[in-house]
Simulated scan of single mutants.
Amino acid sequence: MSEVKGGSRRDMYAALTRTAILDAARKLFVERGFDTTSVDDIARESQLSKGAVYHHFQDKQQVFAEVYLEAERIVMLEVAKAAAAPDLSPWDRAEAAAQQAISCYAADPDTRALLRQATSVLGSERTRELDATVAMPLIEGMLAELARVGELRPVNTDVAAQLVFRLLAEASMTVALAEHPEQLTEDVELVTFTMLRGLRAQPKS
């Protein structure tokens, strides 16, 4: 029994250490940027040794990938909440989710800062892979529901999911790169919704 308890304590300590590293790294990546933040900086900010950082992460790029992925998960949680709003039609839920995905970047400067750096740090393919990990299940589920209730045109839903994902990723990046993101959000939403509505089935006469 004591071994189990010891293992649990070790696991808890490891989880707390990992969280401290990621919290410190997020702060530094946002404030200083990836290029001017070193592993030594992350260790000092987290009040841990450099060895502790390397025990949990292969290198600084892996630390950034984890920080970025967690930021994207938080965005997707907000998107999922918007999509679960009661008393909305499936199509209105889809638009609410898309709107939330865009507005999250307009409202959160830290998440914008991470998104702006992601492609240069991780490469476009790896960034897209991480984004897809958190976003695609929701997009695929919503398109499947739209198809089920007859609100989606008869299209290949796998292709539609890929293209909707890319559209929303570009919309988010457009907001993240804007000098005044909150001012641009309305225009980005208008264009995004206009394009998405091309997938909507025409009402039966």
Rank of each mutant, 00 (worst) to 15 (best):
P109M: 07
R18L: 03
I102Q: 01
H180V: 12
L115I: 07
A107E: 06
E66W: 06
Q47M: 10
M142T: 13
G141M: 04
M173T: 09
Q62S: 15
A65I: 00
D92W: 04
A82W: 12
L16H: 05
V188S: 01
I102H: 01
A84E: 13
L69P: 02
E66V: 08
T185C: 05
P154V: 04
D40V: 14
R18E: 11
L152I: 00
G198P: 03
E3R: 01
M195I: 14
A15L: 12
A161T: 02
G33R: 04
E125M: 07
D35V: 11
H55K: 12
S38A: 03
L16I: 06
R128I: 08
D92K: 13
L77I: 09
A82M: 10
E31H: 10
D158W: 05
A176L: 05
E179P: 05
M136Y: 08
A101K: 15
A15V: 04
R116D: 11
E70R: 15
V79C: 05
L114A: 06
L16W: 01
E189W: 14
D158E: 13
M12E: 13
E78F: 08
E78V: 10
E72W: 09
A97D: 03
V30I: 10
D41H: 08
S49R: 11
P90C: 10
F64K: 00
T17G: 12
V155M: 10
E189N: 12
V164Y: 03
D40M: 09
V175N: 07
R148G: 07
T17P: 04
G150W: 01
A176P: 09
